[in-house]
């Protein structure tokens, strides 16, 4: 099956200083790399999980897909086509890719009613003679909310309800892909399950593909088919979710899994595996970016950037000393 979304060697940089300031302050490279050498493919109807801590570039990557952030090099292909240049080129892509943002309430325009919010996509992309009231009812029904929610304002919604409205908006134009940035952030545990079940049900019914961005490993384990772990803009490990959880190959993946607290007082962790924190993008470590925190770092890690090497079953890992032995190095 040809991929719905394909990303090839993507690089996204941000300018941190204007050309004049850079010259004056003696900054050689006035750019920061937020995303570096990222490649992956997303099959129609499947779920891809993107996991990383803040500053890993996961949200930037997602925003670049819908053209909210300019791409430096590499390609983002949606259904085999590349969108370059301006907003008009992205207009068609934005019909087929819907995005949900982190804050369930804050991502809804505060002065609009629910009805206006969920029918907004039709107003933007042309309503083609649709009855907006009927559409609003249909969408509310799809996300399991009663029709009388149409008159409410965002601040009158609970987190879970607001998140459902976010899903309804995303569904409005019958997209093929939904990008969800932390879909369960800020929600209570009991509500998290409801939202994830809703997403899974909609995927089954509508054949949607999801790109889910999260730091919540416990959640992504249950909902994604494939997974990529990001660290400082790079995919350090990617592959089938089950493989990664059962047998993490990258020390960072291992550390992330170990950092998840277990809801069991008898299995408290004696020590913390990953110390310190993600370095600033402005001070990207030489060699492997993770070597400053890596418990397995060797001399080579400090100087040489590891290339992705292939493990079993299409799994890739960028590490000189992975926890699972590689088969071969790509390129």
């Amino acid at each position: 099956m040809s991929p719905l979304l394909e990303i090839r060697d993507l690089r996204i940089r941000f300018r941190v200083a204007g050309p004049i300031r850079a010259r004056l302050k003696g900054i050689d490279d006035p750019f920061l790399d937020a995303v570096l050498g990222v490649s992956f493919a997303l099959k129609p109807g499947s779920t891809f999980g993107l996991v990383g801590e803040s500053g890993s570039g996961k949200s930037t990557l997602a925003r670049a897909i819908v053209g909210l952030v300019p791409v430096h090099s590499g390609a983002i292909l949606f259904e085999g086509e590349e969108a370059k240049g301006g907003d008009s080129d992205f207009a068609t892509r934005r019909r087929h890719i819907a995005m949900m943002f982190q804050d369930p309430v804050g991502s809804l325009s505060p002065r609009l009613t629910v009805r206006a919010l969920i029918t907004e996509p039709f107003l933007i992309h042309g309503k083609d003679g649709r009855d907006l009231d009927a559409e609003a009812r249909r969408l509310l029904d799809m996300v399991g909310l009663p029709a009388n929610f149409a008159g409410r304002y965002p601040h009158e919604l609970s987190g879970g309800q607001a998140r459902r409205i976010g899903v309804a908006r995303a569904l409005a134009l019958a997209p093929k892909l939904i990008i969800a940035d932390e879909p369960t952030a800020g929600l209570d545990v009991s509500v998290q399950g409801e939202i994830l079940n809703l997403l899974v049900r909609l995927q089954r019914e509508l054949g949607l593909a999801y790109l889910i961005i999260t730091h919540n490993l416990a959640v992504i384990r249950h909902v994604s088919d494939e997974l990529a772990i990001m660290y400082m803009g790079r995919f350090v490990e990617q592959g089938a979710t089950r493989d990664i959880f059962e047998n993490p190959a990258h020390p960072y993946t291992h550390g992330l899994l170990a950092a998840q607290p277990l809801p069991d007082p008898d299995r408290r962790r004696a020590n913390v595996e990953l110390q310190g924190e993600v370095p600033s993008l402005a001070r990207r470590p030489k060699g492997c970016e993770f070597h400053t925190r890596c418990p397995r770092a060797i001399a080579r890690c400090r100087v040489e950037i590891p290339l992705p090497s292939r493990l079993d079953a299409g799994r890739l890992v960028r590490c000189h000393a992975p926890l699972v032995a590689p088969i071969a190095s790509t390129d």
Binding site: D87, R94, D103, S109
Partner: peptide, 26 residues
Amino acid sequence: TSEFVLAERSMGAGRFRIMARHILPN
């Protein structure tokens, strides 16, 4: 810079629409 403006942009809303409908009332 709030998330709802970003959300509108991600849906393809134009500059004028965002200014008149989403920013102005706020």
